[in-house]
Simulated assay, not measured.
Amino acid sequence: MSGGVDSSVVAAMLKEEGYDVIGVTLQLYDHGAALAKKGACCAGQDIHDARRVAEAMNFPHYVLDYENTFREAVIEEFADAYLAGATPVPCIRCNERVKFKDLLETARDLDADCMATGHYIQRKLGAHGPELHSAADPMRDQSYFLFSTTPEQLAFLRFPLGHLPSKAETRKLAARFGLIVADKPDSQDICFVPTELCERHRKLRPGAADPGEIVDLAGKVLGHHKGVIHYTIGQRRGLGIGGLGDHPLYVVKLDPDTRRVIVGPKEALATRLLRVAEINWLGDEPFESHPEREVSVRIRSTRAPRPAILRPLSATTAEVELIEPEEGVSPGQACVFYETEGSRIFGGGWIVTA
Rank of each mutant, 00 (worst) to 15 (best):
S8T: 06
S8N: 13
L14T: 02
E16I: 02
V21L: 03
Q27G: 13
K38E: 15
C41T: 13
G44A: 12
D46P: 06
I47C: 11
H48Q: 15
A56H: 14
N58K: 15
P60M: 05
V63T: 15
N68W: 13
A73E: 15
V74H: 09
T87F: 08
R93I: 03
N95W: 09
E96H: 14
D109G: 12
A116T: 01
Y120E: 07
I121H: 07
K124Q: 13
K124M: 12
H128I: 07
E131F: 04
E131S: 09
A135T: 03
A136R: 13
P138F: 04
M139E: 15
D141E: 01
F147V: 06
T150V: 04
P151F: 01
Q153D: 04
F156K: 11
L157E: 01
L157Q: 03
G162A: 01
A168L: 12
F177K: 10
L179N: 09
D186K: 11
V193Q: 11
K203E: 14
P206D: 12
D210W: 09
G212H: 11
V221Y: 06
H224A: 12
I229W: 11
I233F: 08
I233C: 13
Q235W: 00
V252Q: 00
L254F: 02
R260V: 03
L273N: 14
E278P: 08
D284W: 04
F287A: 06
S289M: 11
E292R: 14
R300L: 09
R300E: 07
A308Y: 02
S314E: 10
A315N: 12
A318K: 05
E319D: 14
E319L: 11
V320F: 04
G328T: 00
A334I: 05
S343M: 10
F346E: 13
